[in-house]
Design a binder for these strands. Structure first.
Ligand SMILES: [Mn+2]
Ligand SMILES: [Mn+2]
Ligand SMILES: [Mn+2]
Ligand SMILES: [Mn+2]
Lengths: 222, 222
DNA sequence: AATATTTTTTAGCCTAACCTAAAAATTTAT
DNA sequence: ATAAATTTTTAGGTTAGGCTAAAAAATATT
């Protein structure tokens, strides 16, 4: 039984929606919004994925991935993130340029290729956006990082990832001069608009809107 | 106007058929045989490619690529061969393992990616099977190599490529111990079955069936 | 030149993956 | 507990890319 590119994209979407709302069923409309595909079409596909035993679908009640479906989705995510590492580390793309190309490459079907690509890249644990790369068994380092705007303390943080992957957001961070691994220290939070005054690498002071801060993931520096 | 994966495969097939019979129109049946798609389906597609101004198609008279179609086909070939070099040179695949994966990778759509991949690989001129890689402008080193079995002389040759790309043939050459770049000297041609007795790199004597010799391309050693 | 064979096209069908409009089920508000 | 609003499904349509069977055109044989 073969899984089409389109089916892979539906599974990936359901997987991604599931990880933000743990253990709850995903609705037709959520998938429709995420993929920009009309709800009626999504219903069609859910029936087909259910037929193929990749999901548990109850009409009107939503959908969950089963083991097979989750495995398939995680594999696509693994491929996506490995290819992003390849594009940045080996071909010198910038982190805001790789997502669209990886959207294509993630559907290339060859286990041997993933295996060798992973080895060639030195078995990376994270992609250029700080997202964890599932291992060959589908196991994934859960990232316990928290968005910068959830913190109020003036302690030091390390910038470990982003939750938004749009070109404009990533380019904005590059323009500010912020890269993954940088040290961040909250110096002030403005009462008026909840914007952040932050010191980067103990050198440069920058201001982040709350929206920017909400999409920056940090670990507390030890 | 976007060109689908399927359309790319038809254009590539027509291109490949054209290079063996220069300047003659390609028939519906030739394409049907090459792609293992029924002739009626091919006719359908030829009408569509003609609509899209990628080919010159005259019903009952066959088809030729026009400039646009040729350009598209050559670009797919360029991508295919660059990816094969990547797989062999960087990921250590064997030359008989890469074709199927390259059949997928050749459809990844990103000019910037081809550009950077080419640079990363050191702008290679030939793929692992000795096939020339078209440059960014679509220009191609014409290979003037001749099949070994066309030669009768006992002079020395260099093995520069293969005309057959099947796994079984390539594995056979590997088993014999023959690699691209090796020196070949015809020691004898058997009257009975036209098989070749050949010395490889002045060391090892091997016997090639005429069919094998027909698929080995050689240059005369200077 | 007429007939037989081969090649190609046309006609009619199918499936995957999309769509819109309408109906049905569920959820929310009164 | 109804009624209104929202969500989801069903019904019917489209396009790309495949198929088979039959018709038409081109080519080969007598
Ligand atoms: Mn991405
Ligand atoms: Mn990423
Ligand atoms: Mn190949
Ligand atoms: Mn090749």
């Amino acid at each position: 039984m073969t899984i089409s590119l389109t089916e892979e994209n539906y599974l990936k979407a359901i997987y991604s929606l599931s990880s933000s709302s743990v253990d709850e069923a995903i609705s037709t409309n959520q998938i429709s919004d995420k993929l920009n595909i009309k709800a009626a079409t999504v219903t069609d596909m859910l029936k087909r994925l259910s037929e193929k035993k990749l999901i548990n679908y109850i009409p009107y009640r939503g959908v969950k991935l089963n083991e097979k479906g989750k495995q398939t989705a995680v594999k696509v995510v693994r491929k996506h993130r490995l290819w992003e590492v390849f594009l940045v580390e080996k071909l010198n793309f910038k982190w805001d340029e790789v997502h669209e190309i990886a959207e294509q490459l993630e559907h290339i079907n060859s286990d041997e290729l993933i295996l060798r690509l992973d080895k060639f890249l030195g078995k990376p644990k994270f992609d250029p956006h700080g997202d964890p790369i599932p291992d060959a068994k589908g196991l994934l380092n859960v990232v316990k990082a928290v968005a910068l705007n959830k913190h109020k303390t003036k302690s030091e943080f390390i910038f470990v990832g982003v939750t938004e992957h749009s070109k404009s957001f990533l380019q904005h961070l590059t323009a500010i001069g912020l890269k993954i691994g940088d040290t961040l220290k909250i110096e002030d939070i403005n009462d008026f608009d909840n914007s952040f005054k932050v010191k980067i690498n103990k050198h440069n002071t920058r201001f982040f809107s709350n929206k920017v801060a909400a999409n920056i993931l940090v670990d507390i520096k030890k």
